[in-house]
């Protein structure tokens, strides 16, 4: 479904992503794990067109999207929940959702919004509130809900568990499972490797901009040696 081949991304002179290739197949949950600064977010931003790779190719559903503009992304069925949620703080909760479905029709949006509210009752209770007044967990739910508004085939999530209490982290991962069960393919970037591996089918471990390992998620969780090396014991 998504195929990333041999990308190299630079921030000025810093070589942040080195010869990275990976694939996500339809229906999968794939996770990219690695320490802070390993290049995880950079990879997602490159896929979505916010950053450009100097080399290689990115294809989504057979189309080359390497030089596609970021604003064309949702049209293709690809959604990106950026790091730090990045909800629109000054808009109301409902307006945030509307923006998520910016390229969809009003009737489609009404229908999808009903689904989102059903999945996130907390968000529904606060739909008239200014989004900036929501708690961290609610903001993350809103960010996920907002990405669902474009009816994506693949959602890329950047650290959805960041800064959340364990009970909320569990909720978020439950939702990821549910979304996947509903047919959405998921590419998940996480620092919380254990949680990520517990929901993922496959995993890529990143180390300083390079893919160090590709593995089946369950195997990786069961392998003591790998656990020691990559998950800190």
């Amino acid at each position: 479904m998504l195929k990333v081949e041999n990308i190299n991304v630079y921030y000025g002179a810093i070589h942040a992503v080195k010869d990275v290739s990976f694939e996500v197949a339809q229906g999968e949950i794939v996770t990219l794990i690695g320490a802070n600064g390993a290049g995880k977010s950079t990879i997602l931003k490159t896929v979505s067109g916010l950053l450009r790779s100097k080399t290689g190719r990115i294809t989504f559903l057979g189309d080359d999207i390497s030089s596609s503009e970021a604003c064309k992304l949702t049209q293709r069925g690809l959604a990106h929940v950026p790091e730090g949620r990045r909800i629109f703080q000054q808009l109301t909760v409902e307006e945030n959702l509307e923006m998520g479905g910016y390229l969809r029709s009003g009737t489609e949006n009404k229908r999808t919004m009903r689904d989102v509210y059903e999945r996130f009752p907390r968000v529904s209770e606060r739909k008239r509130q200014i989004a900036g007044t929501l708690s961290g967990g609610e903001q993350q739910m809103l960010a996920l809900g907002r990405s669902m508004m474009s009816l994506p085939k693949l959602i890329m999530m950047d650290e959805p568990s960041m800064g959340l209490a364990p009970v909320l982290v569990k909720q978020i991962f439950d939702i990821i499972r549910e979304l996947n069960a509903a047919g959405v393919t998921i590419l998940l970037v996480e620092q919380n490797a254990r949680m990520a591996l517990s929901v993922a089918n496959r995993c890529y471990v990143l180390e300083t901009g390079r893919i160090a390992l590709e593995a089946n998620a369950k195997e990786l969780l069961d392998n003591d040696e790998v656990k020691k090396a990559y998950l800190g014991g």
């Binding site: 503009e69 604003c71 950026p82 990045r86 703080q89 000054q90 808009l91 910016y102 474009s150």
Partner: peptide, 19 residues
Amino acid sequence: KAMRTVSEDGEAAQLMGIN
């Protein structure tokens, strides 16, 4: 609304499909 989102966070606005 697009104006307000771009003014708040241009990158996130693009990810919504806003030009």
